[in-house]
Simulated scan of single mutants.
Amino acid sequence: MSSTIATDGEQAVLMAQSDKFDLLLLDLGLLVKDGWTVLAELRQQGKQLPIIIVTTRDDVAEKKAGLQYGANDYLTKPFRFQDLLARVRNHLSSSLMK
């Protein structure tokens, strides 16, 4: 398993469109296109890859919005690596079952 880093939201959308990725860890505070825009564009395009929002924004309304707009999970920073790993494994195994 390998990972790739996008330098901004526009690059993240382009990379996700390639269908080479199994999961997206998405920060909301991206340059060029913010994470909300990335999430919206990918879901509007029908991309079904699991998206986990990883952000410092811990407001309940933001968490709710992230899930309503198509994120599969929402994890606030700081977090324990074990928590992130468990969520990634869970979403990858769920997506393989579809």
Rank of each mutant, 00 (worst) to 15 (best):
S2Y: 06
S2P: 00
S2K: 10
S3H: 10
I5F: 09
T7H: 10
D8S: 07
D8G: 06
E10M: 10
Q11E: 14
A12T: 03
V13D: 09
V13S: 06
L14S: 12
L14M: 12
M15C: 07
Q17N: 12
Q17S: 11
Q17L: 15
S18V: 02
K20W: 05
K20V: 02
K20D: 13
F21Y: 15
D22L: 10
D22W: 02
L23P: 01
L23V: 08
L25G: 01
L25D: 00
L25K: 00
L26V: 01
D27R: 02
L28W: 01
L28G: 01
L28H: 02
L28E: 03
G29Q: 08
L30Y: 05
L30D: 05
L31D: 12
V32N: 10
K33E: 08
D34R: 00
G35T: 03
V38C: 04
A40E: 11
A40K: 12
E41D: 15
L42F: 05
L42V: 02
R43G: 03
Q44N: 14
Q45P: 00
Q45G: 14
Q45K: 14
Q45I: 01
G46V: 08
K47M: 07
Q48I: 04
L49I: 10
L49K: 02
L49W: 01
I51D: 07
I51C: 06
I53R: 04
I53G: 04
I53T: 03
I53C: 06
V54L: 15
D58W: 05
D58Y: 04
D59K: 12
D59F: 13
D59E: 15
V60T: 08
V60L: 15
A61G: 07
A61L: 15
E62S: 14
E62P: 02
K63R: 15
K63Y: 06
K63S: 09
K63P: 00
K64N: 14
A65N: 14
A65L: 15
G66W: 07
G66H: 06
G66F: 07
Q68H: 09
Y69R: 14
Y69I: 00
Y69Q: 15
Y69A: 12
Y69E: 12
A71F: 10
N72D: 15
Y74S: 03
Y74A: 05
K77C: 06
R80I: 02
F81R: 08
F81I: 04
F81D: 01
Q82K: 11
Q82M: 06
D83C: 08
L85H: 11
L85G: 00
A86F: 13
R87Q: 11
V88D: 09
V88G: 06
R89W: 08
N90E: 09
N90D: 05
N90H: 13
N90L: 15
H91C: 07
S94I: 12
S95L: 02
M97W: 08
K98V: 10
K98N: 13
K98D: 13
K98S: 13
